[in-house]
Design a protein around this nucleic acid. Structure first.
Lengths: 173, 173
DNA sequence: TGTAAGTAAGTGATTGCTTACTTACTTAAA
DNA sequence: TTTAAGTAAGTAAGCAATCACTTACTTACA
């Protein structure tokens, strides 16, 4: 990965997140990156390839974010760590996450299977803790995470900490 | 509102929701609606005006969806009705909601004040029920609603009813 | 060691096509 | 007969993608 290649990816991420994928011209990406337009197509083939390269980096970030949840042995702590995931997102990665959340409404094939490993370990945790419907609890928790992440990315509520506290109480944490 | 005007709105909603606002050409809207392209600009001024007209209809739908929550006097029932809101969305309005959810990631000015009346009555309900932090509880509930609506619109989980049940339990309902 | 051959990175002008929007005109109804 | 609804054929700007070309650097070998 050369410096200019990374510059293209950075510029594209910024522009795609702010103006949308279809709303961003490759010429603008090139200008922002300080690079000729042709270089984009040499390195990434076409515009879609550029988006794919960004989303690939995003998938790595997601894996990292959930790694600590999957690795946790204690079921109660596992659930607690899952609830905290949205809070662990680094502010400088917000643009990447905003793009990922925007894209999932634009493409018809929403890839929900990405979270299957997390699903597995959460269902197991709820089972160990004798919850009535572990699978439903898992889906519910994932919905919370989605709503929480949306709130953080779009309007960053002032009482973040209190909200997390209220949520933890519902799981006796 | 003439028949052709409504045909334009219907076609635009369908296309904007499926292919995105920037990804949809006005010529395609015209073709889908069975109308000349010029008519779109006569009635709605420009492409943005067309989107605005659709979103205005959306705001009316949202008001209606939350009306029963705001009107409920009993605090416990009020919370219960709020939790059920995503389930009351009519399947034929899904395209409209998908567009609204997609748009909020594309425009920078996310209008969160729209839910302020709901916020007010929910905070009041939690206060009456002696919750420790009524405002945090309200934000948490709104986040759940957002996550639930997202799930319903994007991948319709098979255990919808069980998830709602698990959630209601957390509020002793 | 000197140089010829090879290669990946990078440029910017140009391509054919699509875009949002306009214009000049026709139709229909009150 | 006025006016709103509607059309078909534009226009200029913007689009993704390609092109022939240059630059910077590495490798092979006489």
């Amino acid at each position: 990965m050369t410096a200019k290649q990374q510059a293209i990816l950075d510029a594209a991420l910024q522009l795609f997140a702010r103006e949308g994928y279809a709303g961003t011209a490759t010429s603008k990406v090139a200008k922002t990156a300080g690079v000729s337009e042709g270089l984009i197509f040499r390195h990434f083939g076409n515009k879609q390839g550029l988006l794919d390269a960004i989303l690939e980096q995003g998938r790595e970030h997601a894996k990292q974010a959930f790694a600590k949840v999957v690795m946790e042995a204690d079921p109660k702590k596992r659930i607690e760590k899952a609830l905290e995931v949205p809070y662990t997102i680094n502010q400088r990665d917000y643009e990447l996450w905003r793009l990922i959340y925007a894209i999932k409404w634009q493409t018809q094939q929403y890839d929900n299977s990405m979270y299957d490993p997390v699903r597995l370990v959460l269902t197991d945790a709820f089972k160990q803790l004798k919850y009535a419907d572990p699978k439903a609890e898992t889906e519910l928790l994932l919905m919370y995470l989605d709503g929480m992440a949306t709130a953080l990315l779009l309007h960053e509520p002032d009482n973040k900490a209190a909200i997390l506290e209220a949520l933890k109480q519902k799981y006796d944490l």
